[in-house]
Design a protein around this nucleic acid. Sequence first.
DNA 1: TTGTATATTAGTAATGATTACTAATATATT
DNA 2: AATATATTAGTAATCATTACTAATATACAA
Lengths: 140, 140
Amino acid sequence: MPAATMKYSRQREAVREFLMSRKDHPTAETVYKNLREKFPHISLGTVYRNLALLVELGEAVKLPGIGGFDRFDGNTAPHYHFICENCGAVMDLDMPQLPYINDAAEKNFDGTITGHLAFFYGKCSKCKTTAEHAHSDTGT
Amino acid sequence: MPAATMKYSRQREAVREFLMSRKDHPTAETVYKNLREKFPHISLGTVYRNLALLVELGEAVKLPGIGGFDRFDGNTAPHYHFICENCGAVMDLDMPQLPYINDAAEKNFDGTITGHLAFFYGKCSKCKTTAEHAHSDTGT
DNA sequence: TTGTATATTAGTAATGATTACTAATATATT
DNA sequence: AATATATTAGTAATCATTACTAATATACAA
């Protein structure tokens, strides 16, 4: 619930800027670790609150529960995601929207389809060649 | 981690049967509530352990983090899901697989796409007419 | 500039789904 | 029946996320 009137905050701006600058859909923990370089006393709660606020304002998107925890995407334009089965990396896919699959879904369905969310699985370019097993998102 | 050799258990059979009998992708809590009618002393841990075991054996599928918690699907054949934005209900969609969208995803992608998961959103037939706000999965 | 109002924060405690642990029980085999 | 071990019930621990609170930052006006 955004406050009645909103005030500027350096922490919120930093969260916003960090999110916009990244294409890897960081977790709250990753945002926290990175912002601590600029704000050594920032609290995890502040990160969570501002991430939720940005989502409410339509300036970020929440990808819930991927690999056990929520991730946040500064790109609010509808797009598809890829998740590497090997290293857990999450990345955007450069592909057009597929609005017609909504029609396919609505064909034998009583309700109304307004949209969809799709995640593609496989191996990222790195894991395709190297057969490593470590999981990423180290926040570097 | 399944044990070296597996033994029969009435509780596990009950979990399996319950899951197979339902098309609404119940949560662990829902399975627990229902099985308590037959096993008044069954523990939630037993339900979780057996659900995880069934997933490992390939007899069930886990839908992670939908609406805040994991759901379990006794239908292991690949299929698509619908999630009602109003009541939170989760249901199967009667539609063909869309293998060609993997090709669309792989077009400008360096890695390998092996599959996808898609969730469709909108209003179920019930919520399309009645404008209620309660969330379901009451376990009845 | 001061002063007042209130949104925001840091720090910490609480929540809640899920997982781990352990002594007792169920199952399988001899 | 006796032995071995997989499984359970019950409970405690985990851990991402949320809620709470006194102190601080921001906005704006006198």
